[in-house]
């Protein structure tokens, strides 16, 4: 069988959110089977796993190690090295606050404080209802427009603390609010 491009296989028609845990592991196994014999494919496999599961919980990392025959410590090492990978569950929406020098001195810190208070989480965390992940970034190259907040793909400039609630409202809870994902258990 020609593998095709497993990355595409994983991403296309995945509808991963609708899959059960077991189906997600099955889906992952199909891809891992293709990669098993190819050395140096760990990053690709983790990419696929994150696409399927939304993030990389420990049982998924252990599963990738087992199926690829790679030591678990190496798998977690790679997953924690690249900022692209997330070992924590992510919300539907990601709010990033710039705390680069320009943004920081022009009010970024206050904006962060408001977000921390309103969302009830710290930077790097996700709200319990699974809606928002809050993150810090360091300079996104828009210093003239500081302070800057990014909401998913949208950029908000010269944000005042009083405007934070408006920004959050744009990413209002979607029609189908989902509770925080249940903890994943490895299916062997």
């Amino acid at each position: 069988m020609t593998p095709g491009n497993p990355l595409k296989i994983a991403a296309q028609g995945c509808h991963c959110e609708e899959l059960s845990e077991e189906q997600k592991f099955e889906r992952l196994d199909e891809i891992l089977a293709i990669y098993r014999e190819q050395p140096g494919s760990l990053i690709n496999c983790l990419y696929v796993a994150q696409t399927i599961f939304g993030h990389l919980p420990d049982p998924v990392l252990a599963h990738v190690a087992r199926r690829l025959g790679v030591p678990t410590a190496r798998v977690t090492g790679v997953a924690s090295f690249y900022s692209f990978f997330s070992r924590q569950p992510r919300g539907r929406h990601t709010i990033k606050v710039c705390l680069g020098t320009a943004c920081y001195v022009r009010g970024g810190r206050e904006i962060m404080e408001v977000l921390v208070r309103d969302l009830g989480i710290k930077a790097g965390e996700t709200t319990e209802d699974g809606q928002y992940t809050l993150e810090v970034v360091r300079c996104v190259g828009a210093c003239a427009l500081a302070p800057v907040v990014l909401g998913d793909d949208e950029t908000f400039r010269r944000v005042r603390p009083t405007k934070v609630s408006e920004i959050l409202a744009r990413f209002a809870p979607s029609a189908t609010p989902s509770a925080a994902p249940a903890p994943v258990k490895e299916v062997v």
């Binding site: 030591p71 678990t72 410590a73 090492g77 090295f81």
Partner: peptide, 10 residues
């Protein structure tokens, strides 16, 4: 060839 430990984070 045990691989117990690795570099974590960065």
């Amino acid at each position: 060839t045990v691989g117990t430990i690795g570099v974590q984070e960065r």
